[in-house]
Design a binder for these strands. Structure first.
Lengths: 240, 240
DNA sequence: TAGATTGTTAATCGATTAACAATC
DNA sequence: TAGATTGTTAATCGATTAACAATC
C-alpha cells in the first residue's frame, strides 16, 4: 500500500525511444500525418512487435489498419521522457568534452539546456563558452538553489570526478550524467547515468578483430582449397 | 563445417570488461599482485558469479582460494580486446566533439590512436589538432591505403554522416565508431558501433522525473497523514 | 468485404543469479 | 585441516519474437 512498487520500464525500450522520435520528427517535416509500426520497424531495422510494445509504454494508442497519428505519437514520446519541457543543467569540467557538449545545440530537441559551466582552474573562470559563463565550482551550491537546477553533467578528469559529484549532491542536484569512467559513490536518492565510451570501444574492437580474423581465415581457406588468387577475395572483404 | 558459426560473446559482458581493466590497473599501481572475483564484484557492485563468467571469456584461469594473478588477468583482458597492440584510426569531422576525442589521451590505454582528422570545411584543412593534421576528406582513400588504417571515427553533423561513412568504406576501413544519431546504411562486412548519447539522456530523464514524482508524492503523503512540515523531508530528498 | 494493422498472450531466447562440487 | 574461492550446472528472470484475435 505504502509505495506500490511501480515496475520499472525496460531499459532497452527506453533507449530505443529517441531513435523513434528522431525518425518521427523527420517524417513530420516531410509532411506525414500518420505512421505504422511496420514502417518504423523497417526504417530502423527492428521487429514491429517490439516497436509496438515500446510505443505502448508512452500510453499512446493506434488504430488497427491505420497506424498512429504522427503528431500525437511525437507528443506522447516527448511527454513520456519529460522532453516536452526544458530541464536546466549545470556542467562541471570546462575541458574539451565539456565545451563540445555545451556547443551541441541539438540537446534542445531533447529537453536539455546547459545553463552554466563550472571548473576549478582559475584560467578558465570567467570564460564564456557558446554564451554560457564558466564559474568556480565553489559557487555552485548557492547558484543551484537560486535557479532550481536538477541535473548535473560531469566532464571532469577521472581523478576529480567523485569530489565534483559530491558538490553536485550538496547543491541539491537530483541526477548526474556522468561522462567519466568513475563509479560514483553517492546517496541512493541521486540518479546517475554513466556514459561508458570505452565500453562501446570494446565492443567495436572485438567485432573488428573478429572480422579481420574471418577475412584472414577465408583467405587462408581459399588458398588451401584451390590455390585461388588473392584477387578473388571480394573488395568488401579486404583486410590489409 | 564450412564456417563453424562461432557463437558471439555476450555483449553485456564485453561492455563490463573495460571497467574490470580500469580497476585492475589501479590495483596494480597500488602494488597488488592478485585479486579475487569477490573483490572485483564488491568494488564494482556486481555479482561475483557474473564477474567470474565475464573473466572466463578471456580464457584466463584462476586458482581456488587464491584468485587470479593480477598481471596475467590484465594481460588476458587486453589481449582479448586486442588492446595489447595499437589500432590506428581516422577521424572524420573536426568539430568540437572530434577535437575533444582527439585530445583524449586516455584512449592510448585502450588500444586506440587517432592518427589524422578529416573534414570538408576549407577553413579547417591544414589545422593541427593536438599534433594531428586535418586533411580534406577526399584525401582519405589514398591515405588509408598508404598507412593501413582499419578504424574510422565519425563525428560529423547528422546530415553529412551517411556520405562520410561511405568514404570510409571506400577507403577500406573495416569498422566505424559512429557518434552521430544516424543509422548508417553500409555493407554487412563493415562493423559499426553507435554511441547513442541521446539514449543515455533518455534513461536519465525518465529516472529523474520518476524521482521528482516520488519526492512530490512522499511530501504530499506526509502532509496528508500528519500535517508534517516540509522541513521533515530529509535533505537528500529535496526536489525544489 | 478483405486485408493491413493494432494489442495482447504465449513461446523462445539469452543473461543473470543461485547452488554446489572441486580444489588449493 | 578448514574455509575461501574457482568453475560449472541448474534455476530464474527479463526481453525479444511468434502467434493470433480484434478491428477499422
Amino acid at each position: 500500500m505504502r509505495n506500490p512498487v511501480k515496475k520499472a520500464f525496460p531499459q532497452p525500450s527506453i533507449r530505443r525511444l529517441p531513435g523513434y522520435l528522431r525518425l518521427l520528427r523527420q517524417l513530420r517535416t516531410e509532411g506525414g500525418d500518420r505512421v505504422s509500426c511496420t514502417r518504423i520497424a523497417s526504417e530502423l531495422d527492428l521487429d514491429s512487435t517490439q516497436v509496438r510494445k515500446d510505443l505502448a509504454l508512452t500510453g499512446i494508442a493506434g488504430k488497427p489498419r491505420i497506424g498512429y497519428n504522427l503528431e500525437a505519437l511525437i507528443g506522447a514520446i516527448e511527454k513520456f521522457l519529460s522532453w516536452d519541457r526544458i530541464t536546466d543543467a549545470f556542467l562541471v569540467g570546462a575541458g574539451s568534452l565539456g565545451r563540445a557538449l555545451i556547443g551541441y545545440e541539438n540537446f534542445g530537441n531533447f529537453g536539455l539546456r546547459i545553463v552554466a559551466a563550472f571548473d576549478v582552474a582559475e584560467e578558465r573562470i570567467g570564460d564564456s563558452i557558446h554564451g554560457r559563463p564558466v564559474r568556480h565550482l565553489r559557487e555552485m551550491p548557492a547558484l543551484a538553489k537560486e535557479v532550481g537546477v536538477a541535473m548535473g553533467i560531469l566532464t571532469v578528469p577521472a581523478s576529480a570526478a567523485q569530489d565534483a559529484a559530491l558538490v553536485m549532491v550538496e547543491s541539491g542536484l537530483l541526477g548526474i550524467w556522468n561522462f567519466t569512467p568513475v563509479k560514483l559513490d553517492l546517496p541512493a536518492s541521486i540518479a546517475v547515468e554513466n556514459v561508458e565510451l570505452v565500453s562501446s570501444l570494446a565492443v567495436l574492437s572485438l567485432d573488428l578483430a573478429r572480422r579481420r580474423e574471418q577475412a584472414a581465415a577465408a583467405q587462408a581457406g581459399l588458398a588451401a582449397v584451390g590455390g585461388a588468387s588473392l584477387r578473388s577475395v571480394p573488395d568488401g572483404e579486404r583486410f590489409c
